[in-house]
Design a protein around this nucleic acid. Structure first.
Length: 797
DNA sequence: GCCTGGTCTCTACCC
DNA sequence: ACGGGTAGAGACCAGGCG
């Protein structure tokens, strides 16, 4: 019989010495199915030395049969490696776990140049070779198997053919469970061996809410058992949380162990286990951690669940109280507050479900585009997402995936940034090169396989593109790997967008296609960065270096052409120039640049008025619709207190809209006055900074590290990548000696004068100094204040 | 011992 | 664990200064 199913998750098993690929999915009728494919063998390639007879290698492998019992068969194949034809022996193994070991032995065999693709997981080879696509539909010939396994599905099938991919946009109706936990700890970061789970809130995408609460004596065993049962009863396809990969799953698993129960929440009666890219796998379900997708939202500086939900409009922050982790025990112990804690926990579960609604289409599209199952694609770093997409495309053209090589890290020259013309300008147009680096790579055929290294025989000059400044050469023909891939991506995105235009923008298909074009764009734009990444399988530094060299060449030529056209250039960064807007001249420039270089540069936006400081990469513009576009300045930085950001934004607004520095200065002084009265919320004084390495590795003392140390003393363990929120308090010595984690500080300890002189005034002066207003003028009363303080200090000591 | 200027470290930004 | 270019704050340190 034939079934059609949508692929949710994949894993491998070896049963009775037969390797099996398990495909977990949902069929057209909405039944949960497991399709087991026993027909697929693990393999790797032994690439043959040039001029060596592959059959000798085959013989050699055969004669070593005793040492390599899992070699099932060999096959001589033609492939390409960095574009060059190679012969290889494809070595099939009866056990997926031995390929890497065998490959490393075979590398020493005579006539074998290298072994490849032993580092690609069995399941990934399966998906790629059969064009089986996660979050995609497939049809497959199957026979139904008796339901003898301990797996939670409606039906189990044995595949009689390879699944065949079917183009179909929309996903089936999934069952989704969002959950959020509360742990009880008075000793700092909760630890599963000593601290109980006191609340788990769960929400389903059907709107069902369930809350599990510990007993009065904080016995959490019944709670956990009830939660496990609930997951089993609801049988979700997707389990979604926030920070679950690095937190909850480990905690809950260990907590259950400690209580003598097993956290069996997957479809195979096993416990959660950590898998590739540090993601936690729940066999048969997709475990999605929304924190993995938070990077997509650069505007959200401090990645908390609340902030992300607020940003996505899921649940407006101002209407809901946030309870800090440190306060959980108080809220539990105080019976009057306990309901608030329960409410907060349930709101968090709802936030998770809301965010899921907002990003799930994108996640699914990214998964199917890249080819990694949805639970993995989020956890995979950008470089690996690009790489899996490349591996998938490589297979289609017979290109072998290179191994990751240890290579020395060396930087290279990047984009060109112009010095801005400081001050105010009216009517400025921004001209942007459309997808500059991808298009450069396509146009000049920059690719690992078209690169001609200096020690190779050199083709005649008319057959190569030579990058300016750096002089690297690339074959004009045939099309390189990157050209193929990038043209494909750009084409596909155009097709999707054309299709979208024919659809009702509220339709399901439109929404799915929009998510897909976003996923395509993300991968397209990340390809240049991938090309310059030392860790990349296809890393060839000259490829990335040539791309930026062409970029500089293009932008410099464009500036010259603009000037000749009579356009005044006031700024530019990498792929853009800012010019005094003159529609006809701009149009003519675009045309000429296209004619000369074959790349498109078009007006992106126009500023009614724009302001530059002396610094590059920092400016603020007024858009025709009245919105402000602020770039690089403190307003959009996460490591400045809100007081400074609020004031600077207001100053910018007054300057751009009313061109009145005096009014702006007056506002600043008024704000400072109120700040000194402590009329601004305490939260607006918090400064957030990321811990970028373990505290011990810092070469110099730093405020946020010191704040983290204070928290650690109290038992609150912070990890690399965590944001530390601190305030500056009154005291002596260096700044780092005067910081406190905000959750441990009170308003009356705060050193307001620090916020005046080091936050608000500098942020405001950054703008106002161009108009002749000094820091002193902004903090006029500072002098008096300072003297008073000095006097007070004097009297004290 | 304190101030000053130069350099280094650190973070977060732009594209 | 995708690239380089850049600003700005604060730590740190050597040298000046009777």
């Amino acid at each position: 019989m034939r079934i059609v199913f949508w692929l949710l998750d994949v894993n491998a098993e070896v049963r009775n010495e037969v390797p099996e690929v398990w495909l977990w999915g949902i069929d057209e009728k909405g039944e949960r199915v497991l399709v087991v494919d026993r027909s697929y063998l693990a393999y790797f390639y032994a690439v043959i030395e040039e001029g060596f007879d592959p059959s000798n290698v085959v013989e050699e492998i055969k004669s070593a049969k005793a040492e390599y019992p899992f070699v099932v068969k060999t096959e001589v194949v033609e492939r390409k490696f960095f574009g060059k034809p190679v012969k290889a022996v494809k070595v099939y193994c009866g056990n997926p776990d031995v390929t890497a070991k065998y490959a490393s032995s075979f590398r020493r065999f005579e006539g074998i140049k290298d072994c490849l693709e032993d580092d690609i997981r069995y399941t990934m080879h399966y998906l790629i070779d059969n064009n089986v696509v996660p979050c995609g539909w497939h049809e497959v010939e199957v026979t139904e198997e008796k339901h003898g396994h301990d797996v939670q599905v409606d039906k189990i099938f044995i595949a009689e053919s390879s699944p065949r991919f079917i183009e179909k946009a929309e996903a089936p109706a999934l069952r989704i469970l969002a959950f959020s936990t509360v742990y009880y700890s008075k000793e700092g970061s909760p630890k599963p061996e000593r601290n109980p789970v006191i609340v788990i809130s769960a929400v389903s995408n059907m709107g069902e809410e369930k809350q599990f609460v510990a007993n009065e004596d904080k016995n959490d065993k019944p709670l956990l058992e009830a939660f496990i049962k609930h997951v089993g009863d609801f049988d979700p396809d997707l389990v979604v949380g926030f920070g679950t990969n690095e937190g909850d799953w480990h905690y809950l698993t260990e907590r259950c162990k400690k209580l003598g129960i097993r956290l069996t929440v997957n479809r195979a009666e096993t416990e959660p286990h950590t898998s590739v890219y540090g993601h936690v796998s729940l066999t048969g379900r997709a475990n999605v951690d929304l924190l993995d997708f938070a990077d997509e939202f650069q505007e959200v500086k401090v990645k908390t669940l609340e902030n992300l939900a607020d940003y996505l409009g899921v649940m407006k922050l101002e209407n809901h109280a946030t309870i800090e982790d440190v306060d959980f025990p108080d809220y539990w112990d105080d019976k009057n507050k306990r309901d608030a804690l329960k409410k907060y926990s349930m709101e968090n579960a709802k936030r998770i479900m809301g965010i899921t609604d907002a990003i799930l289409d994108f996640a699914m599209q990214l998964s199917s585009l890249v080819g990694l199952p949805i639970d993995q694609v989020g956890a995979a770093a950008v470089g690996f997402r690009v790489e899996w997409f490349l591996i998938k495309r490589a297979q289609k053209i017979g290109e072998l995936a290179p191994r990751r090589m240890e290579q020395a890290y060396r930087t290279y020259t990047g984009g060109l940034v112009l010095r801005p013309e400081p001050g105010l300008h009216d009517n400025i147009a921004v001209l942007d090169f459309k997808s500059m680096y991808p298009n450069i790579m396509i146009t000049y055929n920059l690719s690992p396989d078209t690169y001609i290294s200096p020690n190779e025989p050199q083709p005649p000059p008319e057959d190569v593109y030579e990058a300016p400044e750096v002089g690297y050469k690339f074959r004009r023909e045939p099309a390189g790997f990157y050209r193929e891939i990038l043209s494909y991506l750009i084409d596909v995105r155009q097709q999707i967008r054309a299709k979208m235009d024919t659809l009702d923008s509220k339709s399901g298909e439109h929404r799915v296609l929009d998510a897909r074009q976003k996923a395509v764009k993300v991968i397209t734009n990340a390809t240049y960065g991938y090309a310059g990444w030392v860790g990349a399988r296809w890393y060839i530094k000259p490829v990335a270096e040539a791309a930026t060299a062409w970029g500089r060449h293009l932008i410099m030529n464009t500036i010259d052409m603009a000037k000749r056209e009579g356009l005044k250039v006031v700024y530019g960064d990498t792929d853009s120039i800012f010019v005094k807007s003159e529609a006809e001249k701009v149009a003519k420039l675009s045309k000429e640049v296209y004619r000369k270089f074959g790349l498109e540069i078009n007006p992106d936006k126009t500023y009614v008025r724009i302001f530059f400081t002396e610094a590059k990469k920092r400016y603020a513009g007024l858009l025709p619709d009245g919105r402000l576009d602020i770039v690089g300045l403190e307003v959009i930085r996460g490591d400045w207190a809100a007081v400074a950001k609020t004031v600077q934004e207001k100053v910018i607004e007054v300057i751009l809209k009313e061109q009145s520095p005096e009014k702006a200065a007056k506002f600043v002084r008024q704000y400072i006055f109120e700040l000194r009265q402590k009329k601004v919320p305490f939260h607006d004084l918090i400064i957030w900074k990321t811990l970028t390495k373990p505290p011990k590795k810092y070469a110099v003392k730093a405020s946020h590290v010191e704040a983290a140390r204070i928290l650690a003393e109290k038992g609150w363990k912070l990890d690399v990548g965590d944001k530390v929120g601190y305030v500056v308090v009154i005291g002596k010595g260096r700044l780092y000696e005067r910081v406190r984690p905000y959750i441990l500080a009170s308003y009356d300890q705060v050193d307001i004068e620090y916020y005046v002189s080091k936050q608000v005034v500098p942020a405001a002066a950054r703008i106002l100094e161009s108009f002749g207003i000094t820091e002193e003028q902004l903090s006029a009363s500072k002098v008096v204040e300072k003297d008073t303080r000095t006097l007070a200090d004097f009297l004290q000591s």
